[in-house]
Deep mutational scan, measured.
Amino acid sequence: LTVHVGNVTYHFDNPEQAEEWAKRMAKKYQGQIHVKDGQFRIE
């Protein structure tokens, strides 16, 4: 699973971990989480 934050990409084996990280990053950067094809993108 991949989480994109700006132009930085993080890889996770565990979906719960990826989702948790995406939520934390979205809160930190006050962005929206977009989920597409098993990838999380924070914008």
Score class of each variant (00 low, 15 high):
residue 1 L to Q: 10
residue 1 L to R: 10
residue 1 L to M: 14
residue 2 T to Y: 08
residue 2 T to K: 09
residue 3 V to L: 04
residue 4 H to Y: 09
residue 4 H to L: 14
residue 5 V to E: 00
residue 5 V to W: 13
residue 6 G to I: 05
residue 6 G to A: 09
residue 6 G to M: 09
residue 6 G to F: 14
residue 6 G to N: 14
residue 7 N to L: 09
residue 7 N to Q: 09
residue 8 V to N: 09
residue 8 V to G: 03
residue 9 T to P: 04
residue 9 T to D: 05
residue 9 T to L: 10
residue 9 T to Q: 07
residue 9 T to H: 06
residue 9 T to C: 15
residue 10 Y to V: 04
residue 10 Y to I: 04
residue 10 Y to M: 04
residue 10 Y to D: 00
residue 10 Y to S: 01
residue 11 H to Y: 14
residue 11 H to M: 09
residue 11 H to C: 15
residue 11 H to V: 10
residue 11 H to W: 12
residue 12 F to I: 00
residue 12 F to D: 00
residue 13 D to R: 07
residue 13 D to P: 08
residue 13 D to E: 11
residue 13 D to M: 09
residue 14 N to V: 08
residue 14 N to F: 09
residue 14 N to M: 07
residue 14 N to L: 10
residue 14 N to G: 04
residue 16 E to F: 11
residue 16 E to C: 14
residue 16 E to G: 10
residue 17 Q to N: 09
residue 17 Q to P: 01
residue 17 Q to I: 09
residue 18 A to I: 03
residue 18 A to V: 02
residue 20 E to V: 06
residue 20 E to I: 08
residue 20 E to K: 12
residue 21 W to H: 04
residue 21 W to Y: 11
residue 21 W to F: 15
residue 21 W to N: 01
residue 22 A to N: 01
residue 22 A to W: 05
residue 22 A to T: 02
residue 22 A to S: 03
residue 23 K to D: 06
residue 23 K to T: 06
residue 24 R to Q: 13
residue 24 R to S: 09
residue 24 R to T: 11
residue 25 M to P: 00
residue 25 M to R: 01
residue 25 M to N: 03
residue 26 A to W: 05
residue 27 K to N: 10
residue 27 K to R: 09
residue 27 K to M: 13
residue 27 K to A: 14
residue 28 K to W: 08
residue 28 K to P: 01
residue 29 Y to C: 09
residue 29 Y to F: 09
residue 29 Y to Q: 03
residue 30 Q to L: 06
residue 30 Q to M: 09
residue 30 Q to Y: 06
residue 30 Q to V: 06
residue 31 G to K: 05
residue 32 Q to T: 14
residue 32 Q to I: 14
residue 33 I to M: 06
residue 33 I to H: 02
residue 34 H to D: 07
residue 34 H to Y: 13
residue 35 V to Q: 06
residue 35 V to R: 04
residue 36 K to P: 03
residue 36 K to S: 12
residue 37 D to V: 01
residue 37 D to T: 00
residue 37 D to R: 00
residue 37 D to L: 02
residue 38 G to M: 02
residue 38 G to H: 04
residue 38 G to V: 02
residue 40 F to I: 15
residue 40 F to L: 14
residue 41 R to E: 10
residue 41 R to N: 12
residue 41 R to H: 15
residue 43 E to V: 13
residue 43 E to R: 03
residue 43 E to C: 15
residue 43 E to K: 04
residue 43 E to F: 08
